[in-house]
Write a protein that binds this DNA or RNA. Structure first.
Lengths: 219, 219
DNA sequence: CTACAAAGTTAAGCATGCTTAACTTTAATG
DNA sequence: CATTAAAGTTAAGCATGCTTAACTTTGTAG
């Protein structure tokens, strides 16, 4: 069992990994975990020594199969807890991330499986992100585009919010731009890349930062 | 906020404190937490420096008001989680202690209050132990005696199980000697202090170790 | 009341995980 | 293709929390 710190590093590496299998930079991890680059270099050596990542000096970090398994397991815990806290304890969308962050490292496999069962083996968490299953499989997301790439006049459905910032989530909740919501693009404004969209029959203006974090499918 | 280790020490000191306000010995804490006496001495200094305990060399440890507040808060978390895991997630009596042990240090006040609310502000946990309330008050236990002190021919009700060992709990569950159960003392055997009791209309023999851990009230 | 065992403390050392400061490598720019 | 800024690494040091070994205090039995 890796330590809590190591779990956090593995989770972060997973987060920055893309489909191409490129290595992840030390700086990205360091910024994400709010530690120094030095700490990340240090940890990289340890993770590599234990076979969780492949690591070559100056060449970045890459999860091994073993490392990815751990990362997926943490994500599974995190996302199941988020869903559980919302569904069972009535916490709000914006409250759950922080709580799950604490709980994910301190929950036995046994308990997580119980939660999974109670929730009837869900595939997606409250942000629309896939919940890795007990067997390690990751449910497939639909083909999505960032809202910023959506086309004027067309209708879309919100399928994922790619950001964990509490401020963003609070703001989305306030605008009632929640998961699976259907919206229509009224106008894209070129000068600041903001967008006017129709939601609940009303027109609202949303910033580029928001449209980059919200992913949608065309209806 | 004290660290997880410090929380464990404070919890342990609380556990060994009696009503007389005697100091708790280093060795008791060390044994309870499965660390060396040296580690306990060391920690005692740190806890004292931060005002959580009163500590004089060779004279034992004693919680201050501030330290007791922390200890009660941890107990509150622990016991609420235990009850929650049984009631909501359907875990068994014997499974919850270990899980709660992990969760108690990683749950925000906010989340614990939500759990408290969902459970409708319970006063006792599944072992019959009082759950410290949000305001710091500790619900009063009834006047109990250990089952070992019970009198032949009389009837009693199980009110508390003063032990967290999984083996004991499993055994009690198997015998259906659960909280609030009513039993009758048939016979006390002097040679090994075991006891024959009637439960569910059947006579069973229970050891001294068991009768010392189960607390009852006379009916 | 002394001596001795048990309990407790101190000291040195180790692992983990972080910091800052100094240094090295990489890669982009003119 | 040389220079240089950015990215990454190493080194030294610190805090926490533990260990074992050596030592001190306490309290009890003779």
């Amino acid at each position: 069992m890796p330590s809590i710190s190591k779990e956090d590093y593995l989770k972060s590496i997973y987060k920055f990994q893309n489909e191409n299998g490129d290595s992840v930079s030390t700086a990205d991890i360091a910024a994400d975990l709010d530690v120094s680059n030095a700490a990340t270099s240090d940890m990289a050596k340890k993770l590599a020594a234990q076979g969780f990542i492949k690591y070559e000096k100056y060449k970045g970090l890459k999860l091994t199969g073993k490392g990815e398994k751990i990362a997926l397991n943490i994500l599974r815990r995190h996302r199941l807890w988020e869903l559980f806290l919302i569904k069972v304890l009535g916490l709000s969308w914006s409250e759950v991330h922080r709580e799950a962050e604490n709980l994910e490292h301190n929950t036995s496999e046994f308990l997580i499986d119980k939660i999974d069962e109670l929730l009837n083996f869900p595939e997606f968490d409250p942000h629309g992100s896939p919940i890795p299953q007990k067997n390690g499989e990751v449910p497939k997301l639909p083909d999505m585009i960032p809202l910023s790439k959506a086309v004027e006049g067309k209708r879309y459905q919100i399928k994922n919010v790619h950001d964990e910032s509490e401020d963003l989530i609070n703001y989305l909740t306030k605008l009632n731009l929640v998961l699976n919501k259907k919206i229509k693009i009224i106008e894209k404004l070129n000068f600041d890349n903001s967008m006017i969209i129709e939601n609940d029959g009303e027109n609202i203006t949303v910033s580029e930062k928001l449209t980059n974090s919200v992913f949608v499918t065309k209806i």
